Simulated assay, not measured.
Amino acid sequence: MSNIAFEDLDEKKDLPRKRLRERLTAGTFSAEWTLADWLVGTASVTLAVASASFFCWSFAVSLQSPDYFQQAALANMPPKLDQIQTGSIDTSNAMPAPEIVRLREPTPEDYQIVMVFRNEALLATRDELVRVKVGSVVPGLGSIRTIDAEAGSPTVVAENATLRGVANTNAKP
């Protein structure tokens, strides 16, 4: 073979490079595709690959830990705490409660038992109805020590007096 044959092969190898160089310097990549077409095509392929990657990742995570996404969503949510139950009440904007004004302080004789249920009792005076339980402080009676509904007649023992209710005559023996 002569040197001419090798020169033809070298020119054939360099031909694609020359064409690419000509296309790049000419400003268009192809006669049919403009630069905008190439950008849109590249963005579309990148989006498709990213979407497929995200789908594969989320599918693999859901197989490993089925509750992962639910726990992640709940972890990012602010807790909804009831302010009354937690004790964190904003008292600066609290609505004022009416103050009880009595003509005279009640005495133990003013109270009567309306109802006793579980460990609580409803006591009444002429002007008020009071719900009490053991430890409550009631004006005129003082601190409530015991509440008993099982002794035949309801009994409320306070610091200053003991209140007894009327016996239930309708109770079955």
Rank of each mutant, 00 (worst) to 15 (best):
P106T: 08
L129R: 11
F55G: 00
K13I: 15
K172L: 10
L129N: 13
L63Y: 00
G135I: 06
A48S: 14
L15S: 03
C56G: 11
L81C: 11
A149Q: 13
V157Y: 00
L141S: 04
A36S: 12
S143R: 12
P79G: 01
C56S: 13
V156T: 00
P98V: 00
E159V: 08
A36N: 08
S136D: 15
V116C: 05
N3P: 06
A121I: 09
V130L: 13
L15I: 01
T162E: 09
A50M: 08
A73M: 10
P66H: 04
G135W: 07
D127M: 06
E105V: 13
A124E: 15
R126F: 07
D14C: 09
E22V: 11
E11I: 10
I144E: 04
T155K: 06
K12M: 12
K18F: 04
T34R: 11
V134I: 12
P78W: 08
K80L: 15
A5L: 14
D14N: 14
A73K: 14
P16V: 04
K172C: 02
S65H: 07
S143H: 01
A161M: 02
V156E: 00
E128P: 01
G165P: 05
S62Q: 06
P98H: 00
R19P: 02
A149D: 13
A43V: 00
S92P: 01
L15C: 02
D90R: 07
R126L: 09
L9T: 06
S143V: 07
T46M: 10
L35C: 12
T86G: 00
E109D: 14
Q85N: 11
T125I: 07
L47C: 08
L47S: 14
S30D: 11
E99C: 10
F54Q: 09
V134F: 04
A36T: 09
T91R: 04
M95N: 01
D127S: 14
V49R: 08
A149W: 02
A158H: 02
A124V: 14
L74H: 10
V137R: 13
S88A: 03
A73T: 08
L141W: 04
N170C: 03
V157R: 02
P98K: 01
G87S: 05
T86A: 00
V166C: 05
A124S: 15
T146E: 12
N170R: 05
V134C: 08
K12F: 09
G41E: 15
R145S: 09
L74T: 08
A5Y: 11
S62C: 01
S2T: 13
R102M: 15
A36I: 06
L163S: 03
P139I: 03
S44P: 03
L129Q: 12
R145M: 10
M77W: 02
W33K: 05
I89P: 06
A75N: 10
A48R: 10
L47I: 11
D67C: 13
P106N: 06
R102I: 15
E120T: 14
Q83V: 04
K18G: 03
N76P: 07
A161Q: 01
R23F: 08
L129G: 07
G41N: 15
A94Y: 03
G87P: 01
E32P: 03
T91E: 04
P106V: 05
